[in-house]
Design a protein around this nucleic acid. Structure first.
Length: 466
RNA sequence: UCCUUCUUAGCUCAGCUGGUUAGAGCAUCUGACUGUUAAUCAGAGGGUCCCUGGUUCGAGUCCAGGAGAGGGAGCCA
């Protein structure tokens, strides 16, 4: 390539000394240095080479005389493709200085142009691609489950109603409620909160399937780990039990971490250094001992700690933390574990990813398979340091009689789920699956600590800008 | 939904028990320099102190209400 003439097009990141242009085209975090001899160009053209401007440069690729880069372009022609007024640029996140993530969030349309978000969204793409590759290589089929769904019995959270009735003058029943029989689908429908039940139907024929699509929860959750619109991956495998399910989850999460280590080195290195700088800003006791790259390597190289809910309760009860009454919420068999309990197990007790299994039936969903003890179900949660629950899954109840009992116990109308129940009538088999929050995985591999910074256009309560 | 913190220049922030003309760094502009790497040096411009009302001789500072944002909790992925 040295000595070749080429044309590069991109956006100016910096123009030092009226001589050195740093140009970035988004394909990588790296910039290329282009050198202009001021005397060869019209001053009016040079004035337009400003931070944020789009330019096309023609020139010879030469070995760089400077120390910061191996090669550079000796520019012979300059085309200004899109100007950027410095006074206006200064009011945006493109202003060449460090910005807070809060401020960048307010300009989500421009934050793509920063190094941090360029790196995050290139990595987000690579995680998505790795997910498809992992499942495809294993013989899974990618299944598209409906985004508009008529079932509201899934119990995974508050749903968004989808309707095209006139909100000011809807058709009413005699009792004053809205008559959805006159709505587009002839019934009340919502945006999906999970594709799992539909994925089960397909798994009981195609064997191994996975979904990867948008998911909507109308929960009024205001945290750095929740979105109203997020993407979820839900594999479902016929003939798998809970152990198989755990093995698949662990292999999957290790694969994704390894894929990013192997394929996103430059972006990962940048985010690693950013993460390290962030850590130094924190008080000593809140710092992460491992750097971002080490955290990924740790997941790849270490077995996840597996223990049952009952064992976890024992660990918590025997901990000094508990004996010194440092937990805000009490610990007893039967409680739903609080964030502080999960964090203690993951970050203090075991210091590695943890898979908790066999939870009390009462605190888990109706479709999870009842264990022989009659008290617990074959559920599993994967807990990651700093992120919390990243995966939730279970072996599903394949026995019709027990499933009917569970529907009754959970107050679920089995008539409405007739299609789900039907699969237990014909050739029902053990099967299992899980849900991975895509954005939470992207948080883990990028080191970002707010979920709004790993999705291009976050949807949260009271906010749907852009 | 609850608890809590914050809102001062384009950005990040300082501004003491209320007291003259509200500051710094970076960014921007102008000039110098011309093989720089977060360039450097000199200078300049830039403010509805989030909004509304109140207390006071006097409010960026105190009080009340509102708006927006962050952190934590619950719920979950």
């Amino acid at each position: 390539m040295i000595g070749k003439e080429l044309i590069v097009k991109g956006w100016v990141r910096g123009f030092r000394n009226d001589r050195f242009i740093q140009l970035n085209d988004g394909s990588t975090i790296k910039t290329i240095q282009a050198v202009v001899e001021a005397e060869n160009f019209d001053e009016a053209i040079l004035k337009k080479i400003t931070t944020g401007a789009a330019v096309g440069l023609k020139g010879i690729l030469v070995e760089s005389q400077g120390a910061g880069q191996a090669v550079e372009i000796q520019v012979s022609e300059i085309e200004i493709i899109g100007e950027a007024n410095p006074d206006d640029i200064q009011k945006t996140v493109m202003q060449p200085k460090k910005h807070s993530l809060d401020y960048l969030r307010e300009q989500a349309h421009l934050r793509f142009r920063t190094n941090v978000f360029g790196a995050v969204f290139r990595i987000r793409h690579n995680v998505a691609f790795a997910i498809h590759k992992f499942f495809n290589d294993k013989g899974f089929f990618y299944l598209n489950t409906p985004i508009i769904t008529g079932s509201d019995a899934e119990g995974a959270g508050e749903m968004f109603r989808v309707t095209n009735l006139d909100p000011l003058n809807p058709p009413l029943n005699e009792d004053g409620t809205v008559n959805y029989k006159e709505d587009f689908f002839g019934k009340a429908v919502n945006l999906t909160v999970s594709g799992q039940l539909e994925a089960e139907l397909a798994a009981l024929a195609l064997g191994q399937v996975y979904t990867f699509g948008p998911t909507f929860r109308a929960e009024n959750s205001n945290t750095s780990r929740h979105l109203a619109e997020f993407w979820m991956i839900e594999p479902e495998v016929a003939f798998n039990d809970l152990k198989d399910n755990m093995d698949l989850t662990e292999e999957f999460l290790k694969y994704l971490s390894k894929y990013i280590l192997d394929n996103c080195a430059d972006d990962l290195q940048f985010l690693h250094e950013r993460d390290a700088a962030e850590q130094t800003q924190k008080p000593q006791n809140e710092r992460n001992e491992l750097g971002l790259i080490q955290r990924l390597e740790f997941v790849v190289n270490n077995d996840f700690k597996r223990l049952t809910y009952t064992e976890a309760i024992e660990v918590l009860l025997n901990s000094n933390h508990y004996k010194k009454k440092k937990f805000k919420y009490d610990v007893a068999w039967g409680i739903d574990l609080q964030s502080e309990h999960e964090r203690y197990l993951v970050e203090k007790e075991f210091n590695c990813p943890v898979i908790l299994t066999d939870y009390p039936a009462e605190i888990k969903a109706f479709y999870m398979r009842q264990n022989d003890d009659g008290k617990t179900v074959a559920a599993m949660d994967v807990l990651f340091p700093g992120i919390g629950e990243i995966v939730g899954g279970s072996q599903r109840e394949e026995r019709m009689d027990i499933l009917k009992e569970k529907c009754a116990a959970f107050n679920i109308d089995e008539e409405e789920l007739w299609w789900y129940m039907d699969t237990r009538k014909f050739g029902s088999v053990p099967h299992a699956g899980f849900g991975l929050g895509f954005e939470r995985m992207v948080m883990f591999v990028t080191g970002m600590t707010n979920i709004r910074d790993v999705i291009p256009f976050p949807r949260t309560p009271q906010n749907a800008e852009f």
